[in-house]
């Protein structure tokens, strides 16, 4: 099973095994990882599951859709080049993401 690493703003890491095809957001929510609010449950409606993808894992991610792009412009923490909504990241292989300071 692929491993998903969540890195909190204070550096604390949580490593979880995830089912292929499930999203990074669902993996975080199902296991109660703090900092992924995901108010809308994964519909790219709320921009509260924002993450920064670690550089080593940026290749091979799905393209940012128009909707995700617009929502990423409205996140509570600053958008960076590696910003994604974790509900739109389906897990195919290992991935590591940093959780921003604020989601709402």
């Amino acid at each position: 099973m692929p491993k998903v690493t969540f890195i909190q703003p204070d550096g604390m890491q949580t490593v979880l095994e995830a089912d292929t095809g499930t999203s990074v957001m669902r993996t975080a929510a199902a296991n109660g990882v703090p900092g992924i609010v995901a108010e809308c449950g994964g519909s790219a409606m709320c921009a509260t599951c924002h993450v920064y993808v670690e550089d080593a894992y940026l290749d091979g991610l799905p393209e940012v859709s128009e909707v995700e792009d617009e929502m990423l412009d409205c996140t509570a923490s600053a958008r960076c080049a590696n910003s994604r909504l974790s509900c739109q990241l389906n897990i195919e292989s290992d991935i590591a993401v940093r959780i921003p300071e604020a989601q709402v």
């Binding site: 929510a29 199902a30 296991n31 109660g32 809308c40 449950g41 994964g42 519909s43």
Partner: peptide, 30 residues
């Protein structure tokens, strides 16, 4: 999660386990 029930109906089945909010472990840990 209930919202997908009216949106993701077109694969012939709907599986509540795939829509679970939390893992079984989470309830135990909490």
């Amino acid at each position: 999660q209930r919202p997908p029930l009216s949106k993701d109906l077109h694969g012939g089945t709907v599986d509540a386990a795939a829509l679970a909010f939390r893992t079984a472990d989470w309830y135990g840990r909490q």
